[in-house]
Each structure stands twice: as C-alpha cells, then as structure tokens.
Design a protein around this nucleic acid. Structure first.
Lengths: 217, 217
DNA sequence: ATGGATCCACCTATGGATCCCT
DNA sequence: AGGGATCCATAGGTGGATCCAT
C-alpha cells in the first residue's frame, strides 16, 4: 500500500502528455469524446489490475484509484462517480455489505488539473493521497446511503434527484436519458428505469483534500 | 409464419456462396474459425430480428431459426444447440416456463449441406420445415429437461455428462474448458462451474426430418 | 455551481454453432 | 460416433468519468 502511494507520488508534477507518451498512448484533443481518458491513463501508469471489472482497482490490497479533477486553485471541480446504484434485489443489502462502503474504504486520490484553459496534454498530476473515511465521514455516508437505498426499496427510484444526500448523491449513469434498466415500482413490479450511479459531491472531496493539506502545514 | 416459411423455401437449392454474395458477406475458407457463419448468414437472408439477444429469432411470431447441418444423405450429422443451462436460481423454474420449451415450441429448421468434402461456398440449402414438437416428443423433452434440471438443483452439475437424456443432453458451452460461471454445489454454495448448454441429439433431429420426408411421400 | 445528460473502452454473456480426439 | 472442447460476432453492463444548459 505504501509502495503504491510512493509510485503515485513519483508522478506528481508530471504532465498527462508525458505520462501518455511513456505508455505509448495518444492524447485526445479534449475530453468531450474521451471522458474517462485521464483515469484510464493513470490506471495504466500505476498498474491497476481489474480493468473494467466489478472489482477493486488494486485487488490484492483493496484500494480504489480515483482521479480527482481539480481547478486552478487545486480544489475538486466535479463530483466523483463511485458505483452503479442497485435497483433490484435489495432485501439483503446493508451499508456494511454495500459496494459504496467497500469502494470507499481505501481510496488513492490522485489530483489532476482540469481547468479547461489548459490543454489536456499539459495538465499536471498533483500529490496523491491515500484516504479512508474517518468515523464522521462514514456516519454521513452511511446516512446518505441508507436514505437513498430506502427510497429505492419503496419503489420511489423515479422520485430521486441529485439534490438528496449530503455527501453521497444519486445521478444518472447511462449512455443517454433513454437507457433503461430493471427497477422496481411502488407496487413491487419490475419496470424499466433510467440506470443511475452513486456520486460523491465535490464539496465532500474538497473537504477531504482540504483537511489533508491543512494537516500538512 | 407461412410467409416466413415461403421465404425460407424460396432459397432451397441455393448455395451458401450465392446467398453470401447477395448479402455482401465474404465466405470464410472453412468453419474452423467461423463456426456460426452459416447460421448467421441465414439469419441475415431471412431477416431475423433479435441479433444475439436472449430472445426468439422472429420475435413477433415466436419462431426460432435453426440451421441443420446434414450429411450427404440429407441426415443431421451434428447435435443442435438450444440455449444455456441455468445453473442458479432454479427454485421457480418449471418445464412450462423453461427456455428450452419456449425455444422449441416453434422452430424453422433449415437443412444445410455440411459434408466436409464440399467447399463451404458450394454447399446447398435444403427445404425448410416449420416444426412444433408433437405430444410424444414433448413428453420426452420434458422428462429429459426435468431429469437434468433436478440434478442441477441437487448441486450435482459437475456429475452431468452428455450421456444423459434421450433427446436433450447437456454439454459444455464455453470459450474453452477453463471458462467458469456461477453454479451451486451439493451444500448449496455458489461455486465456479463450467458453463453448459442444452443440445438436441442428432438422432432426434434425424427423426424430425425423417418423419417429415416420410409424410411427403 | 451543479443536476441531469452523455461518451468511450473493455469485459462478459449470449447466440450462432462446429471441431476433433478417442 | 459423439462427448467434450472450442471459436466468432454482437449486445449489454460496468468502470473510467466529464459535458453542458440553466
């Protein structure tokens, strides 16, 4: 785990262009048609296993890799996707067994410049941070997760908006708004539903980074 | 349904090469690296919907299209794949609700020459046959399906061999023998298992074709 | 600023079956 | 001869996320 952090920190200050060249990967003109590009580049650089499987990035040590797009002041500008929202078979599901908790138990945050006025190839990687939620954070995450999951259990998935949840929110996660996945309605019937994902609000990841940098000083 | 049969019969006597040209599809040298080629060609020619989805080929009318590889005497030489074998969540499953019964309720059999000594492009399509199992056939299929499914329910999937079943057998259906899918063992635990499929024995499809041609005379 | 919408890559499961060794 | 092994195409789901209109 410490070795992973060292490797992640060894690329602090490098540009995405330099790292892409190292991997013989070409840099797209922008991220409009390659939204996951930076994340996948860093997976390749840091040697993440479990490519696109429903598993942790660094399986052996149970660490999830997340790039964190930061603005010119070094603060997260976007929410962070966590995992898909289960819409059926929720009977046995608890916070303790949830994917959200598992994915967030150990995260390697790698800040990456994301200001639109800097060309993609010239954006720099920041100093990585190995993080686990402290008890206060976990209590809020658990409360958010429970509130949202209970709504889904009640068949009210289509009433959920991104306004709900303090740290954790639910937003669409699909090719487009016409995509459909099995869900459950208020009568318990299986109905087609927009696929959704759990996301961490930017204010939460700002707090994570903020606490860390404060500690450093 | 009759219209489909007419279309299928209108290509009787044509070679696979002619039909491939009509679809602007190239003919592979042999079927070693394109085992499903003839079946997919006929789907294209006959306008099957539901390409590679878990659904009937001709959804609207509930008809399954099956090419039937026949030897130089016009008799089926190979078994016919029906569908994957469900290995978990068998509680609610009955013959009446099974995929096997659904897929076999209406089949458009299209015989295709399969003698290895005739080049693929020169093999001819035979006279198509729209078939539903008669009560005797269905009784045997049901008995086979029930016997095999009960073994899986008991967690004895790994004891199943292709020797079991009079008309319907279970054989591997996978990329190779290392492939694994969730199954259930004798203690009810989920264990990795070789994926399998239901197949109709060649002797059964021989009987289907034989009865039909006898009726014609 | 952010909620809702969208985009690519990759893997897996299914559907099309035949191959090939014993 | 036929049981066990294998091969390709395609659709769909998940994982990587950012875009963009308001």
């Amino acid at each position: 785990m410490e070795e992973l952090l060292s490797r992640a920190r060894s690329i602090a200050g490098r540009t995405l262009g330099e790292l892409a060249e190292r991997q013989h990967i070409s840099v797209p003109p922008d991220q409009r048609r390659a939204k996951g590009w930076a994340g996948q580049l860093l997976e390749a650089i840091l040697g993440a296993t479990a490519k696109s499987r429903a598993d942790m990035d660094f399986e052996a040590i149970g660490v999830e890799l997340k790039t964190l797009p930061v603005n010119h002041r070094g603060l997260p500008a976007e929410s962070t996707y966590v995992c898909v929202v289960p819409l059926t078979n929720l009977e046995e599901l608890t916070w303790e067994t949830s994917w959200v908790r598992k994915k967030l138990s150990h995260v390697l945050w790698v800040p990456v410049q994301a200001s639109k006025d800097v060309p993609l190839a010239q954006r720099r990687v920041g100093t990585a941070l190995l993080w686990s939620p402290d008890p206060d954070h976990e209590a809020v995450l658990r409360a958010d997760w429970t509130e949202l999951t209970d709504l889904i259990r009640l068949g009210e998935v289509d009433t959920i908006t991104a306004h709900l949840g303090e740290y954790l929110q639910i937003r669409p996660k699909a090719a487009d708004s016409h995509a459909r996945r099995a869900g459950v309605d208020e009568e318990g019937h299986i109905v087609p539903t927009l696929p959704r994902g759990f996301y961490l609000r930017a204010l939460f990841t700002r707090e994570i980074l903020g606490r860390y940098y404060t500690t450093l000083r």
